[in-house]
Amino acid sequence: MATIAGDRQTASRGAIPATRRRSRLMGERLYFQIGLILPSVLVLLLFQVVPIFIGMDASFRRWSLYDPDKTWVGLEHYRYVLSDTNFLFTVLPNTFLLMVASVSLSLALGMAVALLLHRGFAAQRLVQTVVLLPLMIGPVISSTMMRWTFNDQFGVVNAFLGWLGLGQPAWLADRWYAFGVIVFTDVWLWTPWFALLLLAGLKSLPKEPFEAAALDAAGRWRVFTHITVPMLRPVIGVCVVIRAIDCFRTFDQVWLLTGGGPARSTEVFSIYVYMEAFQNLNFARGSAAAVIGTLIIMVAGLALYALINRFMDVSR
């Protein structure tokens, strides 16, 4: 575009005063740029921004199928959600617990896998492919797989435990066992993602500080804690923020594994919203919960971001 504009400019030199020529050319360029981004802006507006506002509007009204008037009720739904003991004492703790457990475990495991792959060994390519497999399987499929793996009668886990002569718990019928299975599935799903990004980070680190550390008699653990981790901090920081925010809206794994049960004890934020809106058909209450969740994750995200920024400043 720039060259076309440039050619025009030289061709028409002298015919039109410089300022007018420039403004017309700039305008042409602007139209072109707007034309390029317009389709995606329209899609974004229609399918993301407008629904968000409709949803927010709904959260202030009595928006159910039997009330066509959609009466304005102000903060009533917010008051309901914020005084719902289930939301406050089960859903939110579960959501944050899942976030902390899943992110920290998959970060630790991903780091271990990345270090292993970075060191290089004979069957590295094969192992690398196998390790990355969970990334290529849809969460719905892997969650279904996990549900069967942990099935109390037919699952491999219990078959194996039985073979060892150990107890065979009803995995998905007990709150903490079920929650454990959810965390396990989430970690299984996301470890490769961490491994992949951390491996890329490791590969981009300069090798001289590691050589200097080898001459400085630093053992493996000291190299890891004093050289590798500080140098990887920016990568770790970005991974944790992205993953933590993403984890807040976990839905598929929990829905397929426990459906929030037993007795709503493993319900997380997305499930709560879904249940309110589409099971109880109380769209307004669901919307209110969604807005509250958005606010929470915004605050949490900003806090995390600030924390990690400070963390990275230290490394600078």
Partner: peptide, 18 residues
């Protein structure tokens, strides 16, 4: 390297930046 009791200066210094 660590048992050889040597010290080295690298071209790009290889200081621990953090």
């Amino acid at each position: 390297p660590r048992e050889r009791d040597i010290a080295m200066v690298f071209q790009n210094y290889a200081l621990y930046q953090h």
